Simulated assay, not measured.
Amino acid sequence: MGEALQTALTERYDTLTGSLRERVLTFVLAAFDSLPAYRDADAAAFLERVLPVVLGVQQQMGQVTDAYLTAMLADMLGTTTATAPATSAVAEQLRGVPPATVYERPFVQVRTALSRGHDLADAVHQGRTRLLSITETDLQLARTHAARGAMERGGAKFYRRRLSKTSDTCALCVIASTQRYRVAELMPIHPGCHCKPEPLPGNRDPGQVLDEQLLKDAHAAIARDLGASDSGGRAPDYRQVIITRQHGEYGALLAVRRQNFTGPDDVRPA
């Protein structure tokens, strides 16, 4: 079928995953906003109501991603690889931390803000923002874990990051989208990232740079904003601008050099 089928598959996948994201975020934020208070009892009620829905949507995200990539690879390679059941990781495997612990963090954020003198409205806003970031990140983790399994099973060796057409895209993702990656490497993410993995046909390494023009445009934007640019990454030192680091829960994480994140060895087993 070729390009026409692949375009149709991608559009359908984007519609489904966009709908999943919108529905779960609306539900989770509405549940948080409707709480009478943000004490321990309220947190417990919130978790009881929200966690089953969140975990179910994460599973759906993994299953939809698996089906999408299996169909893409079948068309690219001319195979009939079957979709494996439930290839997505369980919630605890996404971060290495129990989901209840993760979704209690917005309430910790509220209490911390109050202890630092913020008024209640601002403290709740901070907790809500934390909840939004957590939920979005977990959806992306469900996507990336399922994607790696589907691509490995389908025989893909390399993939690229495809930028989202429906959300703002940061410079980190733009530059990363010009590169090819090996399937064995989990796709780097950052909180709020909506990029999706797209397998590259064939087993031959296409080379590191896939989109030379976009990469040049990104360098030009960096020169405009930082005052200097260099295709060799020397002035300014691009290692100080964009790198990949390991986050204790997310795994591979796109980040700027001066941000400090918890490493895998710093997160205690649950």
Rank of each mutant, 00 (worst) to 15 (best):
G2W: 07
E3I: 15
E3Q: 12
T10A: 06
Y13E: 05
Y13A: 07
L16G: 00
S19I: 07
R21V: 09
E22Y: 06
E22P: 00
E22V: 07
R23K: 09
R23A: 10
L29I: 14
L29Y: 08
A30M: 08
A31P: 00
A31C: 03
A31S: 10
A31F: 04
F32V: 12
S34P: 00
Y38E: 00
Y38Q: 01
A41F: 07
D42V: 11
A44F: 01
A45W: 03
A45S: 11
F46N: 03
F46H: 05
E48I: 12
V50G: 01
V53K: 01
V54H: 02
V57L: 03
Q59R: 15
G62C: 09
Q63F: 09
T65M: 02
T65I: 02
T70E: 01
A71F: 04
A74Q: 10
A74C: 13
M76H: 02
T80H: 10
A82G: 08
A86P: 00
A89N: 02
A89W: 05
G96C: 10
P98T: 05
P98K: 04
T101D: 03
R105W: 14
T112G: 01
R116Y: 10
G117Y: 04
H118Y: 14
L120Q: 03
D122E: 13
D122W: 11
A123V: 14
A123W: 09
Q126R: 13
Q126S: 11
Q126A: 13
Q126C: 05
S133H: 06
S133Q: 11
I134L: 09
I134M: 02
E136G: 09
T137F: 07
R143T: 08
A146S: 01
A146H: 00
R148Q: 12
K157T: 13
K157L: 12
F158P: 01
S164M: 10
T166P: 05
T169F: 03
C170W: 04
C170P: 00
C173Q: 10
V174T: 13
A176Y: 11
S177V: 12
S177I: 11
T178V: 05
Q179V: 12
A184P: 00
L186V: 11
H190Y: 09
K196E: 13
E198F: 06
P199T: 12
G202P: 04
N203Q: 12
R204E: 15
R204P: 02
R204S: 14
Q208H: 04
V209L: 12
V209G: 03
E212D: 03
Q213K: 05
H219G: 00
A220L: 08
A220Y: 03
I222P: 00
D225L: 09
L226R: 15
D230L: 07
G232E: 08
G233D: 04
G233L: 09
V241I: 15
T244G: 14
R245Y: 11
H247K: 11
Y250I: 15
V256L: 05
V256R: 12
R257Y: 13
Q259K: 14
N260Q: 13
F261Y: 15
F261P: 02
P264E: 15
R268T: 13
